[in-house]
Structures are given as structure tokens and as C-alpha cells.
């Protein structure tokens, strides 16, 4: 394989994955409104395009043409930088998530469908996940508004406390799989007949799975943990003062973070692209399986949002520090003991 060929393949993968995730994020805004409508006996948006499918496009056009407001006394540079900082990390995280096994077209192997097959993929995700908080906290701080500031303070406290749980649960998975490379983690759990298959399936990491999913909700600031927005008390939370495309950037960031987190859950706990009882499935079946599993988790995000009421902030912190953290630690210790004694 020549250098040019390798470059072109990498470019193609980047374009496919990036556009895919951005489009999924856009469609999620529609899906959110559709599912919320159905759960409330309503129909939901259906005017723009068939079944309202072009609604995200119409929303995008609206955002672009809306007036941009900057509150008096806002730190203009930070105010502009915050939405970019909020949207960027989740989009960069996509790079290491493997969506399909080695793509073979016409007997030619193009490698796994991932932008960067990093050996420290998990470390990369956690590092960028830690950066995501900057967009939120800078947005709230630079707005020069009490609601924004309170929202961003809450969001940062929450994200930091739940990141611990997130990291500890991921660590147990790493211990099980013996690798920090996401592709290898998928491959380690792909054989359904083995004891560590699908991490969650054979039950050894079920606790970690539940903790991880809940921590994911808190990490992406989704219901029932969306204290950064909390509209009854804080108007709109950290993005109270944002309008037009700047606000849309926060939104895109939130939805692409959801997409990435859903994909990550599947990769870590549900065997990524592996299909049960069909170990040598072709790559397109694997891709379809991966997308289907991710879709289920995206639906779970919406489903939970329209089911559960918001927690109180102290309940959230208590849950994070007094329940989740000890459980995650215990789980890690048990996992380590089992793996080393096996």
C-alpha cells in the first residue's frame, strides 16, 4: 500500500465517520421531538419533508439567520470560544471509536472502520471528555449572567464527580480485556462462547455496565441529570445568554456527545460490531450490528429523558459520591481479583 493510497483511505474513513456522526446528531434533534411527542400522545413535527425528516435542516437555516446577541459585560472572546469548545471534544472523540471490523472489498483489506486505531484509545477519549467541561464552564462564566454561572458551576461539579465513576467502570473493562485499544477490546469480547463475552452479556461486568450508562447520562448532561440547563430554576443554565448558531453549537455538541457515548457503551460493554453466534460475520453485517446497538442506546437517552423527572442537585451529588463511586471501586477490585486469580 502506497502512502497516497493510505492517505486516501484514511481521508475516506474520516469523511464517512464524521459526516455520519454529525448527521446522526442532527437527526437526533428530530428523533427527540418525535419520540417525546409519541410518548405524550402527540404526533410531533411532520410539516417539513416526509415525516418531518427535513426538520433539522429547517432548524439549521433558522439558526443561521437568527440574530446573535452578546450580553453587556460579557467576555467577548470567551463567549465566542465556549460553543466551539463545547462541540469540539465530542466530535474529536469519534476518531478512535471503531464502527466495523476490517473492511474487505473485492479481496482488498482497508482496515477497521475507525479514523485512528490508537493503542491508547480509551485514554484519548477520557482526556477529551475532560476537556468537554471547558466549553460549558467558559460559556457560563463569560456570559456575565447569574443563571449561566450557576448552571455552569453545577454542570462542572456534576461532570467531574461522574467522570470518576466513568473512568473506574472503564478501567474494569480494560482489566477484563487487557487492552486500552478500543478495537482490541471489541475483539476480546466478540466470542460469545467465552467467559468474558460481550462484557455485559455473561454478567461479569453488569454492575459496571449499569454504572457506566447512568454516568453517561450525567456526563452528557442529559435527563435526569441535566442540571446545567434546569430550566425551571436557571432559565436555560449555561446557555441562557446564547442565541442563534452559537447556541446551536452547544446543541450539536450535546447530541454528538450522546452519539459518541452510545457508541462507546456498545464498544465497551456490548461487543461492538460482533454478532452473537456468528463469529465470522462479514464487515457490513458487523457495521449494521454496531449501528443497531448504538441506535438502541440513543433511543434510551431519549426514552429516559421523557420518563424520569429531574433529580435534585444534592441527590445527584450524593448518588455520585456515596453510591456510584464506592460501587465502581468495589467492582474494579473484584474484577481485578477475579482476573488475576483465574
Amino acid at each position: 500500500m502506497t502512502t497516497l493510497e493510505g492517505f486516501l483511505i484514511a481521508l475516506a474513513k474520516t469523511v464517512v465517520i464524521f459526516l455520519g456522526v454529525v448527521n446522526v446528531a442532527a437527526l437526533m434533534t428530530l428523533a427527540e421531538r418525535k419520540f417525546s411527542a409519541w410518548m405524550q400522545y402527540r404526533i410531533g413535527p411532520n410539516r417539513v419533508g416526509p415525516y418531518g425528516l427535513l426538520q433539522p435542516l429547517a432548524d439549521g437555516v433558522k439558526f443561521i439567520f437568527k440574530e446573535e446577541l452578546t450580553p453587556a459585560g460579557a467576555n467577548r472572546f470567551m463567549f465566542r470560544a465556549a460553543p466551539i469548545l463545547a462541540a469540539l471534544p465530542s466530535m474529536m472523540t469519534i476518531a478512535v471509536i471503531p464502527f466495523a471490523p476490517d473492511i474487505v472489498i473485492g479481496g482488498k483489506n482497508f482496515g477497521a472502520l475507525t479514523i485512528a486505531d490508537l493503542d491508547i484509545g480509551i485514554l484519548y477519549i477520557l482526556a477529551l471528555g475532560g476537556l468537554a467541561i471547558y466549553g460549558v464552564i467558559l460559556g457560563g462564566w463569560a456570559s456575565n449572567s447569574k443563571y449561566s454561572l450557576l448552571g455552569s458551576l453545577r454542570a462542572s461539579a456534576q461532570m467531574i464527580s461522574y467522570e470518576l465513576t466513568l473512568i473506574l467502570t472503564i478501567l474494569s473493562v480494560v482489566v477484563m480485556s487487557g487492552s486500552l485499544n478500543l478495537r482490541e477490546i471489541v475483539e476480546a469480547q466478540s466470542d460469545i462462547t467465552r467467559w468474558n463475552a460481550w462484557n455485559v452479556h455473561a454478567m461479569p461486568q453488569f454492575v459496571a455496565f449499569v454504572l457506566f450508562v447512568v454516568a453517561t447520562f450525567a456526563e452528557t448532561n442529559r435527563h435526569p441529570f441535566d442540571f446545567s440547563e434546569c430550566e425551571p430554576e436557571l432559565v436555560g443554565g449555561f446557555h441562557t445568554e446564547y442565541s442563534a448558531m452559537k447556541w446551536a453549537m452547544f446543541y450539536i455538541g450535546e447530541y454528538s456527545a450522546m452519539t459518541v457515548m452510545a457508541a462507546l457503551t456498545v464498544v465497551l460493554f456490548l461487543g461492538g460490531w460482533s454478532v452473537p453466534f456468528w463469529p465470522d460475520a462479514p464487515w457490513y453485517v458487523g457495521l449494521a450490528a454496531m449501528l443497531a446497538k448504538t441506535g438502541c442506546f440513543l433511543f434510551l437517552f431519549l426514552w429516559v429523558r421523557w420518563t424520569l423527572p429531574r433529580f435534585r442537585f444534592d441527590q445527584l451529588m450524593r448518588l455520585g459520591w456515596k453510591v456510584f463511586l464506592p460501587l465502581a471501586l468495589l467492582n474494579l477490585v473484584v474484577t481485578g481479583a477475579v482476573v488475576s486469580l483465574r
Binding site: 409519541w38 410518548m39 400522545y41 402527540r42
Partner: peptide
């Protein structure tokens, strides 16, 4: 379950 019930809109 509510998702599949008739819509009132």
C-alpha cells in the same frame, strides 16, 4: 407503551 397509543393531536 404510551408511544403506541392513539394520538390526540
Amino acid at each position: 407503551r404510551k408511544m403506541f397509543e392513539p394520538k390526540v393531536t
